[in-house]
Design a protein around this nucleic acid. Structure first.
Lengths: 195, 195
DNA sequence: ACCTGAACACCGTTCAAGT
DNA sequence: ACCTGAACACCGTTCAAGT
């Protein structure tokens, strides 16, 4: 006979993981404290012990999770910028259910830190206006992913009534979306170099 | 003594207008059928008569409102594209409360029509891959506005407890945001011409 | 320290009923 | 045709209580 209490205790990580799964799978509007509790085999109120500000804290944590991207420093600033943009795109695409939060919530916590880190790395690699560049790169990635995810048909009725959604394709994007992204990214880097 | 019934009858337009005001002013999460009813001096249930699919239809209508942008056809395709991007940016900036919907919901209804119209206008003006161009332009505008609105501090606690929010600045953006937008737009148009 | 149960105010939506 | 009132299932959050 199984124990009534969850075998592994609750944690911030497990809560976020479960929340991401619900959002990606059923949509943000169906991510509910009670449903989240169910998924974790716990009463909804247990979540408040790990995320004291409740649902608002959960939303912040989700945006942070998908937005706090790091890459190794080496190489030219172009290499660094390219790697960071690719990684950011991948992170956002992986969790379309919380894209609205990522595009909309101002960076906080680990997300804000990652931003400063990337700015420093680009400056270190010799780029003059690193802050402006990070702004432009972020805007590029945001726009590209927003259009990609819109076109992927995510966020639509999901068939008749809440049946789960299949990710657009395994391990990356459709080849033309990838090519578009790389093309625009190269153009943007050229533009930034000419500033 | 005032009449109990609203002097001017409910309509789709008035509902959308009131909903935009609530979303821009208090945030999307506080846009509630009941609050919407209050703002319109009507019971919440009256809204369903004008938007049969209820809140889902309301969300669609809001995204549509802020997304269905038209400009006059004349001039080079560059002129047309530039005008359309400026108008789209202005429309999105005007209603930061529903930006998440606009960036996230696939175009439907008048929004989808406006997209086709703009594609046709660019093709008519001599641009080879007009569909790809509209995709790129849309991505550019989306990303730019997302970063702008994030930086404007909208969507934050709004002070202590739900006090209203002041638009970033009257009649347009901060001058450097405008300059950044124009700079990137010019670069993008150059890139599209070289395809 | 960590989780539960009951409670409260609020939410979306339905449906029959009013005018 | 247009709106209301009452009702239902569900939601976020609190708080005292259990272990």
């Amino acid at each position: 006979m199984p124990a009534k209490r969850p075998p592994v205790p609750l944690s911030r990580e497990r809560i976020i993981e479960a929340a991401l799964h619900i959002a990606d799978t059923q949509g943000l509007r169906r991510l509910t404290m009670r449903r989240l509790g169910d998924a974790l085999q716990v009463e909804a109120m247990a979540v408040y012990h790990h995320l004291p500000r409740g649902k608002e804290a959960l939303m912040d944590a989700l945006a942070e999770h998908v937005t706090a991207v790091h890459v190794e420093p080496g190489g030219s600033w172009q290499d660094g910028a390219r790697a960071w943009c690719r990684a950011s795109r991948a992170a956002l695409r992986e969790h379309p259910g919380v894209l609205a939060l990522a595009l909309t919530k101002p960076p906080k916590g680990r997300g804000a830190i990652a931003l400063r880190e990337q700015t420093d790395q680009l400056a270190e690699a010799g780029l003059p206006d690193a802050a402006g560049a990070v702004r432009a790169l972020r805007a590029y990635v945001f726009g590209a992913v927003a259009v990609e995810v819109q076109r992927s048909g995510w966020a639509e009725p999901a068939g008749e009534d809440g049946e789960p959604w299949l990710p657009p394709s395994r391990g990356g994007g459709s080849p033309d979306a990838d090519a578009d992204f790389e093309l625009g990214l190269t153009a943007l880097l050229t533009g930034l170099a000419a500033r």
